[in-house]
Write a protein that binds this DNA or RNA. Sequence first.
DNA 1: TCGTTATATCTGAATATAACAATATTAAGA
DNA 2: TCTTAATATTGTTATATTCAGATATAACGA
Lengths: 86, 86
Amino acid sequence: MDYEKESELLKALGHPIRLKMVQGLMNDECNVNKIMDVLGIPQSTASQHLGKLKDKGILVARKDGVRTCYKIADDKVREIIKILEV
Amino acid sequence: MDYEKESELLKALGHPIRLKMVQGLMNDECNVNKIMDVLGIPQSTASQHLGKLKDKGILVARKDGVRTCYKIADDKVREIIKILEV
DNA sequence: TCGTTATATCTGAATATAACAATATTAAGA
DNA sequence: TCTTAATATTGTTATATTCAGATATAACGA
């Protein structure tokens, strides 16, 4: 196991807002605007958390005009979320 | 899902030393002294990390005379480690 | 081009975490 | 009781994270 890498992954998931974001993306892709509304947080805060999730390879971003759609990029992450959902 | 609680769990696992500790405890229980030697870190550092893992309910401690044996207390944690090991 | 919308980046203050030496505590044996 | 070994706690310093306002950038329609 690459302890540095995997612990970074866990740390990135280890924040309530980011955990909500990732779980919310388990089913559908979503844009920052929508995520921001659902979570009730300022736009810059949402963007920063999404940026961190992207940096760690948890999410990938796809540009669609002005919008940015994020989705889960790592199957390990999906499995971890499922375990926590039980 | 209790986002606060689960994200605290992930955050506690999200440190290379703590991840190594928990993985090392997947098979056998272990005392601080041994863990410290294996990881090559000062005793106080090891104790603090173990303390945090205990606080978050990831490990339980059992006193055996002067020794303290830690073991994994949470099956979700075992599953997460297994996923990361693949 | 201008205005608007969506998103990202910058910035600084507040807070949290990390490391580790020093010290305290506790248990067991001489 | 005195010593020693194992572990926990405390204090300090360095570093990282979080939040949110301000600002920048980019795409689109009028």
